[in-house]
């Protein structure tokens, strides 16, 4: 399987998320962690981009780290099509992919 991309920056604060989307090829997963989880919330430009990506290429998956979403009080704001994983799920994603690109 392709790369696991992790994004830990708010999409409103930096262009990391946008850059990452451009590098997410077939077989890759984008995992949103820390302040990156804001991209997974409904009603944002970032989550619209995720929906567009899913529609145009169903071989790219999106995931969000549950504990980081809970910490920010936004569990009930999660947009469709994004899987919630815990720390164990994070480790599994790392194991399932060929390599990890941690976008900073």
């Amino acid at each position: 399987m392709g790369l696991l991309h992790t994004v830990n920056k708010s999409p409103f604060e930096s262009n990391t998320f946008d850059t990452c989307l451009g590098y997410a090829l077939d077989g890759s997963t984008v995992l949103l962690i820390e302040d990156g989880v804001y991209a997974a919330t409904i009603g944002t430009r970032a989550s619209e981009k995720i929906q567009q990506k899913i529609q145009s290429n169903n071989d790219v998956s999106f995931a969000v780290l549950g504990p980081d979403l809970q910490a920010r009080g936004l569990e009930n704001k999660l947009a469709d099509g994004i899987k919630v994983v815990d720390y164990e799920g994070f480790v599994n994603l790392v194991a399932e992919h060929d390599s990890v690109q941690s976008w900073l």
Partner: peptide, 12 residues
């Protein structure tokens, strides 16, 4: 985002 309700941080 600092003021959102329901912040739960045990897991982090």
């Amino acid at each position: 985002y600092q003021l959102t309700k329901g912040q739960t941080t045990e897991a982090i």
